[in-house]
Nucleic acid binder design. Sequence first.
DNA 1: GTGTTTACCGAACATTCGGTCAGCTGACAA
DNA 2: TTGTCAGCTGACCGAATGTTCGGTAAACAC
Lengths: 198, 198
Amino acid sequence: MTTTPTRQRGRGHDPESVLHTAVTVFNERGYDGTSMEDLARALGMTKSAIYYHVPGKEQLLARALDRALDGLFTMIADPMATSGPAIARLEWVVRRSVSILVERLPYVTLLLRVRGNSATEQQALEWRRKFDRFVSHLVKEAAAEGHIRPDVDPALVTRLLFGTVNSITEWYQPSRGGSADELAEAILTIAFDGLRTR
Amino acid sequence: MTTTPTRQRGRGHDPESVLHTAVTVFNERGYDGTSMEDLARALGMTKSAIYYHVPGKEQLLARALDRALDGLFTMIADPMATSGPAIARLEWVVRRSVSILVERLPYVTLLLRVRGNSATEQQALEWRRKFDRFVSHLVKEAAAEGHIRPDVDPALVTRLLFGTVNSITEWYQPSRGGSADELAEAILTIAFDGLRTR
DNA sequence: GTGTTTACCGAACATTCGGTCAGCTGACAA
DNA sequence: TTGTCAGCTGACCGAATGTTCGGTAAACAC
C-alpha cells in the first residue's frame, strides 16, 4: 500500500489551482484575449509546465463551464423547482440562481460570456438555452396562474428578470457588497414589488 | 469642379460599410476572437483590402466604441437629464438609454463587452464609469427626494436597473420583438411597479 | 545507493496573427 | 490614346499563438 496519493509535496500546483487561476485571468482579459503566456505569468510557472497539469487551454474552459452548468442544472432538478405553485418555484429558482452565481462567480461569469467560437462553447450555449427554456416555462406558468401581471409578455419578463440576475457578474465582488441572500432579496423585492414608493 | 465625391463607383466598400460589418463580426465572435481574415471573409474582400479603407483592427474598435459613447453622453447632456425632479429625470434617462441601445445596438453591445485589454478599451471603460457615476447620482437623488423605496441601497438599485437595461444586448433582435418604446415601457413598469399582481 | 516518479524548464514546433508593400486593373478625364 | 488614380490583389514580414519535446533536479521508494 502506498501513502495516500491525494496530495503530492510539489510546489502547490495542481489541476485545481491551475483551473482556479486560469478562470480568474479568463474573466479579466476574456478567454480569447488570454494567452498561455498570460496564464503562466499569473501562475508563476512556465507555459510548458501548465501542460503537465492540464491538457490545454480549451480543456480549462470546458472544465470551468461544466462547473457553472452543473450548479444550475442540479438546482432545477430539485423538487423545490418542480412542484408547487409556479410563483413560489420561480422565486426559489431566482434565489438559488443568485446563490449559485455568487458561490461559483468566476465560473458562471465565464459561462455568460461564451460566444460559441468552438465546439466546447457551442455545447455550453446549448445547455444555457436548455436552462433558459426551463425558466421561461416557469414564468409562463406563473403568469397563467395569475400571479404575474398579464400586461407584459412572459418571454420578455423572463429575459429581463434573468438579465437582472446575470448582470450581477458585471460588478459583484465577494469582499464588499452584501451576501447572496441579501442580493437575492433585493432583486426579488424590486422585480416583484417595484422600486416606487407608494 | 469634380463630380460629387461622396460615393465612388467602386464595389460598394467604404470605411463605413467596413466598420458596420466589422462590428457585426466582433459581436458574433468577440473582438479578440475575430481575426482580420474573418473580417475579410465577411466583407468579401482580401485582408489587405481592408487596410485601404481603415487603418487597422484597433481603430475599428475605437470608432465603434466612440459611436456608442457619443450617443450616451449626448443624452445625459440634455436638459431632460439635468433639470426637474430626479425621479422624472431617471425615468427619462432609462427610456433614452433603451432607445440608444436599440438604435446603436451593435456598437453599444461591443462597448458593454470591453474588458480593458488595450489603451483603447481602457479609455472606453473610463467613459463608461463616468456614465455610471452620472446615473448613480441620479438614483441617489431620487431616493433622497423620497420617490424610490428606502430599503434598498441606491448603489445597488443603479446596478440592477442598468443591469436590466444592458441585458437587452444579450437577446434583442431588431427584426422580431417590440420597439424600443415598448421595451422601455416594460422595463419601467417592472422596475418601478413590480411584476406581482395585486 | 539505485531506480522511479513528480514537477518543472527551455527550446523549438507549426500555425496564425495583424500589418505592409509593390504592383495590377479598369473606369474615367483630357 | 494616353495618363491618372481609386480600389484592390497576392506575396510577404516579424511577432505571437497553443502545443510538444528532450532533458533534469529534487523527492521518494526500496
